[in-house]
């Protein structure tokens, strides 16, 4: 088997990535503003400093090479939890690292969409715009034990760095050189391990096609995603409302500057 992770880490911040809304839990749709609800005319504010610092700390701890110049891009797709129907996501600011014998492809920052429940058709935008750090690993994991080991060490690292206590692990699984299946909606280490085990067995029986599936923690199985979440072409475009094309993170005497032109 070949397993790789796209780990979404929610750094501990007071406010959201591109607006001042609080990130603390509240009644639905109260921690919102024109920016994180995609009202026409709204523009992103400067990115959250705590989130950027956390990202740099993490990139260094994962032995990544840091990139001076990083752009914030619009990633376009339609989905009920995405107010602008594009997500702001940065180019990688850390690349080619390694941790616990697993290659780290890249790390970038992005914003969380809201919460959409397909069963009820209800959306809560409190989470929309919250900062996320995404760590992408190489598909170097070839056993459940290695997967457990990696995730437990990664979780411990986050605790040690004081960055976050929340991870979501999108897990990519393939067997015998077959198609890669992406499994989303995994919120715990045990969930990830169960999902991997289920997928390995399912792919051996049913075969595998390139697709996105959702993990159901109640049944510990994966099911095909109801709505198309991944598209072939996101039409990435640099966010023109954040001054100009490039952005760079420079740690200067402990302070972070976010450069754009």
């Amino acid at each position: 088997m070949k397993v790789g992770f796209e780990l979404h880490v929610t750094p501990l911040t007071e406010s959201k990535m591109y607006c001042d809304c609080p990130t603390k839990n509240a009644q639905p749709n109260l921690q919102v503003c024109p920016i994180c609800t995609g009202q026409p005319g709204s523009k992103p504010m400067a990115p959250n400093e705590t989130a950027l610092r956390a990202g740099i700390k993490l990139a260094k701890a994962l032995n990544c090479t840091l990139n001076e110049s990083v752009s914030v891009m619009r990633k376009h797709y339609f989905y009920p939890d995405l107010p602008n129907n594009y997500q702001l996501t940065s180019e990688p600011f850390g690349e080619n690292g390694s941790f616990n014998n697993v290659g780290i492809t890249e790390i970038h920052f992005e914003e969380d969409p809201g919460q959409y429940d397909p069963k009820s058709g209800l959306v809560d935008l409190n989470r929309s715009g919250s900062p996320l750090l995404e760590v992408v690993t190489e598909p170097d994991i070839d056993s459940i034990e290695k997967a457990r080991d990696f995730l437990e060490e990664f979780s411990a690292l986050l605790g040690f760095l004081g960055i976050s206590q929340k991870i979501k692990a999108d897990t990519n699984v393939s067997i015998n050189g077959g198609a890669r299946v992406e499994v989303k909606n995994i919120g715990s280490i045990s969930g990830a391990l169960n999902a991997i085990q289920y997928e390995v067995n399912r792919q051996a029986k049913e075969g595998a096609v390139l697709e996105t599936r959702h993990y159901d923690k109640d049944t510990m199985t994966t099911k095909p995603a109801r709505l198309k979440e991944t598209v072939a072409d996101y039409r990435y475009m640099r966010e023109p409302n954040l001054p100009r094309p490039r952005a760079s993170l420079q740690a200067k005497n402990g302070s972070t500057t976010y450069s754009t032109t």
Binding site: T13, P22, T23, P28, P47, L122, V123, D124, T257
Partner: peptide, 28 residues
């Protein structure tokens, strides 16, 4: 390139009355 400073990290209480046209128990 030119540099701008990132925004600190202070939350401001939401003062907006964003009326979503379709609501149910606060959710849209």
């Amino acid at each position: 390139f030119e540099a701008i400073v990132p925004r600190g990290d202070r939350a401001r209480k939401s003062a907006y009355d964003i009326r979503f046209p379709k609501t149910k128990d606060g959710k849209i």
